[in-house]
Design a protein around this nucleic acid. Sequence first.
DNA 1: ACAACTATTCACGTATCATTGAATTATTTG
DNA 2: CAAATAATTCAATGATACGTGAATAGTTGT
Lengths: 117, 117
Amino acid sequence: MKIESAADTLSALAHGGRLAIFRLLVKAGPAGLAAGDIARKLDTQPNTMSAQLLVLSNAGLIRARRDGRSIIYTADFDRMGELLQFLTKDCCGGRPEICAPLAQTVNACCPPKKRRA
Amino acid sequence: MKIESAADTLSALAHGGRLAIFRLLVKAGPAGLAAGDIARKLDTQPNTMSAQLLVLSNAGLIRARRDGRSIIYTADFDRMGELLQFLTKDCCGGRPEICAPLAQTVNACCPPKKRRA
DNA sequence: ACAACTATTCACGTATCATTGAATTATTTG
DNA sequence: CAAATAATTCAATGATACGTGAATAGTTGT
């Protein structure tokens, strides 16, 4: 991931409302949530929500699919993974100080089962 | 870290120039770099650089100390670690899909030597 | 004190972003 | 086809962010 792309992706998340949306979609998992449901949960107007979803979508952080009248949004885990890799690669290139606490968190969630060179 | 604080921190990084500054400071490590040196390396005017450094500083991502006529900036690893923990905790709470590739990166840099409960 | 150097602060114009009411598109149901 | 539902797009407004020239503050050496 290039630096400008990373900045754009960070920009999409750099907004209280959009960050809340993304968290919600991550929690929802692959099933996702309809735009209207998200709007109701976060107490936001439909058109405002649409605009926020569009920003996240353009950044590649979420995906949309139609289901009847509703449009279901899901978090794009790959994209988020790329961003986190960019940020951590950046840090690890220099010193491991940042990664130490992060490694704890990550390994608590995803303990390394296999080891590959 | 609260969501609004996380959004503010992301906002500071959501800018090509500022992200480049932060990367540079992370690479520089605890020794840091003078404001003028950063400005020259990134081909930016001194006052513009000052403004960008202020934003990163207000977000807690970098620290400043005076050394003679120069002001030396260093990356705040703790703060960055908090942000990454917020983002990964967010993801791990739901599904491990995001963390899997991230765990690879982190463990490549900071392999878990000890295991503690 | 003075000049040189480093960096910041201030004021200002421009550009971009965020939100909203109104109108529009798409889908389902009667 | 018409009505109801779900979501988006459009147009406009207010707010915020960005970069820069000019002026200011702190430090060093003479």
